[in-house]
């Protein structure tokens, strides 16, 4: 059974993730579990970028804009509604609708991919400077103050239907892992559907796909919105993990991190970016505790090196290596068999 790049592979990885969820509380400390909730949120951001960039070929540099919108929408809605369940859906919708409006302008304007990268990045940065300035009491949505530079508090998750029954950190971790696994299986399934196949063909050759009769603008817009919704979901988990959301979710560094996770993990896979998020997060947070190497410096070096030397990312490079070895071994076996047969024929 070939696992790499098939839906079966996705299910196997999802199974491994469930096992990880069950044993994680017994191997990690309580504090690590709380941190893990944040990282899960970030890894969903990486997953959404892997979907839109790796499978749709849409280079979105400002994926963190949707992530941040999700986080802000959740925090604001949770204060106004008084519960988390509906707020999560509001957050996903807010991010997806924002992406749909932005996407209408860029895809239907036929903006080229490099422009698109810069425009999405710019949107994120403008949101950053906008949210930083919302510090007065006049900036509020409903009952929720936006809080400017300090951001606004994010309510913890609660039981569906009962706003006062907060989940404990351990339960929040289980819920987050469940959401990550569902999001992962959903994206894994999405890329195997007809819709996903068309998106992949747009990545490979947009003109040819268009000539085959597909409205590429519409497909790209849909994929863009879906991935923005997923990014918004990641934002929800992140702000729940941190317990507040600040304008930093829109910052250049946040956008850069998402790109780095996807590049390092491998942009043609979905699991690569998720794993890269976990590994790099704990790498940078351990760098953050010492003073010799600046975290930005290390991230910059990682990005440059990967672009120059390992442009496909770690996971595809390893997969290709195994694939090549398998093919080589198969060829060798075949050759040996042929030789044997010839030998018999002569003998």
């Amino acid at each position: 059974m070939r696992l790499y790049g098939t839906f079966n592979g996705t299910l196997v990885i999802a199974g491994l993730a469930i096992i990880f969820t069950l044993i994680a509380p017994s191997i990690f400390q309580f504090f690590t579990i709380i941190t893990l909730t944040q990282v899960i949120g970030l890894s969903i951001l990486a997953l959404s970028l892997a979907l839109v960039w790796g499978f749709g070929g849409i280079l979105c540099f400002g994926q963190s804009a949707f992530f941040g919108i999700g986080a802000y929408a959740y925090s604001v809605a949770a204060v106004n509604i008084g519960g988390s369940t509906g707020s999560i859906f509001i957050a996903i919708l807010a991010a997806a609708i924002f992406a749909a409006i932005l996407g209408y302008f860029v895809f239907y304007g036929k903006v080229s991919d490099v422009y698109l990268a810069v425009i999405t990045l710019t949107v994120s940065l403008i949101l950053y400077s906008l949210m930083r300035r919302t510090s007065g009491p006049e900036y509020k949505i409903g009952k929720a103050l936006l809080g400017g530079f300090n951001g606004t508090g994010s309510a913890p998750l609660n039981m569906p239907g009962d706003g006062s029954a907060m989940l404990f950190p351990m339960q929040t971790f289980y819920v987050s892992m469940a959401i990550l696994i569902i999001a992962y299986v959903f994206t894994g399934w999405l890329v195997t559907t007809k819709f996903g196949r068309v998106c992949i063909s747009i990545r490979e050759n947009e003109v040819r796909t268009e000539l085959l009769g597909y409205d590429t603008r519409l497909y790209k817009l849909c994929l863009f919105s879906i991935s923005a919704g997923i990014a918004g979901l990641g934002g929800v988990l992140f702000c729940v993990g941190v317990t507040r959301v600040t304008p930093d979710v829109f910052s250049l560094g946040q956008s850069a991190l998402a790109i780095i996770w996807v590049i390092v993990g491998g942009r043609m896979t979905l699991i690569g970016p998720i794993l890269a998020t976990f590994v790099l997060y704990f790498l940078t947070s351990s760098l953050g505790s010492q003073q010799i190497l600046n975290a930005n410096l290390v991230l910059g070096i990682i990005l440059v090196i990967f672009v120059l030397i390992v442009p496909n990312g770690v996971v595809p490079t390893i997969m290709n290596w195994f694939e090549r070895r398998r093919i080589k071994r198969y060829a060798r076996q075949k050759e040996r068999r042929m030789k044997l047969r010839k030998h018999r024929a002569i003998g």
């Binding site: 540099f61 850069a256 590049i263 930005n296 991230l299 910059g300 990682i302 440059v304 442009p311």
Partner: peptide, 22 residues
């Protein structure tokens, strides 16, 4: 390789920020 240039210069940007901060 326009996209790779974008990414590489982004890495460079982080690198410069890191160096100057240090």
């Amino acid at each position: 390789r326009m996209i790779d240039t974008l990414l590489a210069t982004w890495g460079l940007s982080l690198l410069f920020i890191g160096i100057i901060t240090s």
